[in-house]
Structure formats: structure tokens, C-alpha cells
Amino acid sequence: MKRTKINRGKQFQDVIKFELIKFLRSRKIRAALILTATVPLLIYLLTNFVLDSFISQIYSDSGVVNDYQIFVNFVLTLSLVNVIMFGGDSLTNDFENKTGYTLFINPISRTSFLFAKFVAASIAITSFNIMFYILASIFSYAKHSAIPENVLLSLVFASLFSIGLLSTSFALSSLFKRSNMSNIAFIFLWFIVMGLIEYFLVLAEIKPWWSLTYAAGIIIYIFEVPYPKDSVIDIPSLLVPGQSQTIVNLIPEINLSIGVFLMYTIIGLMISVLFYKRKQLS
């Protein structure tokens, strides 16, 4: 009997290639393009022409760093949206749409499929992060004739954050039968559960260093030279006019936060592999 030797590395590349072709031809790529192009443009227009005086009241130094931080604040939301678009249904659509009946009868392991899909989605999401930073840099240069230091480092952190987030999306996607359910669980987890936990921990002056979204603070703080430290700030009270209130500004540590991004990526992928291998087309 003739046995065929299959090049597993080549197979892996082929899955990535066809996943990217599918992305390029999908509606979600257009949605992501519009979103990534519109958000920096809107921030630029609003901060320069509509809310200029308001911004200058908030920031004593409305310089290149502060302006750039306003842009980068939105990269977190952009990542959440892009992860839902490119990762939310990656592991469920072959079961939901029955494409698995023709795909999984090929001699390739589920683990290879999963990792190839993960790499393809990471490429797509990182590409949009790069596009966002390029636009933010263009607008920053247009206003200040300069861009801040550490833009590249911030982009690397944003990409590591997005990949960690994508991994949690894959983990949830492997647990649910339908992409609607996994996307709802993803939104609930990151927008509600983690948001509330982080909020109350910070109120109690406890650093939620293990939280992916808290660690993502390094994407924004990296522009400040030197890198900031935890501090206590007095701000005008919102409740009692004329008085001030004290808030504690807890700053995520860079090395620890990078570790958190990587841990989420690894643990998310481990959960994904465990459950995706068990999924059956029955």
C-alpha cells in the first residue's frame, strides 16, 4: 500500500493562507477597515476643532504625548471589536455552517487547524492595530509636526494585548456550540465582569495586575517619560463643589503586564485545544 508523506508545516501554512483569503473577502474586513480609519479621524477632528478648549482644560499640557494618548485609549476598544470580528466565530463556524463535514475529513489535526486559525486571526488583528497607529501618527504629525517616543513599543504592547484577548475569545469559542453565545460570553466577561472587578479593586487600592485590561494600561503609559509610578492625585470633587477628592492612580508594571499578556495567550490556547479536539460533528 502506498503511503503519502504529508508536510505538516506546509499544511499549517496553507490553512493560514486560506483563512486570510476568507477574511479578505468577508464583510467584516470592510467593517474593520471603516472602524479603524474612522476612529482616529474622528478623534483628530473632535479634539482639534470641536472639543479643543475642553481638552485643554483637562490636560494642562496638551502636547504631543497627551494627544497621542487620546488616540491610543481607543486601541483597547478597537481590539475588543476586532477580536469579536476575527476570532469570535473561528472555532464555531465550521460546526454551525457544516463546512466541517468537508474540512475535517482531510488528514490534518484539529490542533493544527486551531493554531493556524489563531495565527491568521492574529495577523488580521495586528494589521488593523498597525493601521490605527499609522493613522494616529499621521494626525499627530499634522498637528504637532512630531510623534511621541515609544510609538513602536506601544504598538507591540497593543498587539500582545490583542493576541491575549484573541486567545480568550478562542477559549470561549471552543466551549460553546454557537458563535452568538461565545461572543455574548466574551462581551459579558470583558465589558461587564472584568470591568466591575477591576473598578472595585482599584477603589480598594488593590492592583488587579492579573487582569488583561488593567495590564493594557502599559500601552498608554509607555508614552510618558519617565514611566509613571503609583500616585495619589487630588481632583475637584464631582459631588461637593469647591472641595477636592483623592484618587489613587495605580500604574501597571511593564514586565509583569507583558507576562500577563503571554499568560492569557498560553492559557487561552490550552483551553481551546482541550475543548476544540473534543468537539464532534454529531
Partner: peptide
């Protein structure tokens, strides 16, 4: 197997 489906794009 079953009613086959393929990637529409």
C-alpha cells in the same frame, strides 16, 4: 458526508 457545505467566499 451529510449535505456538504463549503466556504461561500
Amino acid at each position: 458526508v451529510e449535505s456538504a457545505e463549503f466556504y461561500p467566499s
